[in-house]
Design a protein around this nucleic acid. Structure first.
Lengths: 114, 114
DNA sequence: TTCGTATTTCGCGATATGACGATTCAGTGA
DNA sequence: TCACTGAATCGTCATATCGCGAAATACGAA
């Protein structure tokens, strides 16, 4: 029950859903996600932690950056199912479509002070 | 996005998940659900409203009682999918199993004043 | 209509959540 | 070692949520 509720809670915030939808397209670091969502860096970091705790995404430290990607689903069957559904859900949502257009122009080299 | 988040929010509370799992077994009125969950009747009513707004359950007034049942899913594809998944999810959860045992002994004739 | 019952709504307090800025932590390179 | 950069954590505030009891509704029976 606890793990199920955790997944539901994690996906009950629009910003977090947007993060999952972006990570469907590609791996992203925190500063890219911060820029894409237009929120404070600490806010993005907190959302990422909640998604990771729920088993929806996974982080991987690479040098100075922390890259986030969709989880493989091994951690939680509920997370795996929702990740699968979200592949084809919400693509026509205005805020998701907007992100999809914006995404190719968000590159860490231009955001982080190199 | 709003309807999706609404479904996730509705299912991010253990009491509400329990309600959905109980309604898988049979139609129930508010006083039966109140007794099964062991909460105040106003609390149960509020949870039911949230689940109904999300398109997960449907209510039907029958005389003095209001009977709640699982929604057919026509209202929201997200709700429909989650209802389907919950059919086989969480059956082995302790609190759900306990409810399943308790359920046959909860009858409105014994709860409501006759 | 008037009463009694099942349910909903209202109002409140305690707790949880989401946002931010400031600080701290971790890893790179001078 | 030190300075610098990306990310995580801390402290705080505003808002949302969950629980309850009390009052308001809705309905059926007398």
């Amino acid at each position: 029950m606890k793990t199920f509720v955790k997944v539901m809670k994690a996906l009950s915030d629009p910003s977090r859903v947007r993060i999952v939808k972006m990570l469907q397209k590609r791996v992203m670091c925190v500063c890219e996600i911060t820029a894409a969502l237009g929120v404070a860096q600490s806010t993005a970091s907190k959302h990422l932690k909640i998604l990771e705790d729920a088993g929806l995404i996974a982080s991987r430290k690479e040098g100075l950056w922390v890259n986030y990607a969709l989880a493989d689903g091994g951690a939680s069957p509920y997370a795996a199912s929702l990740i699968g559904n979200l592949k084809h859900w919400l693509d026509d949502d205005p805020s998701i479509a907007e992100l999809a257009i914006k995404l190719p122009h968000i590159r860490r080299e231009e955001i982080c002070c190199r």
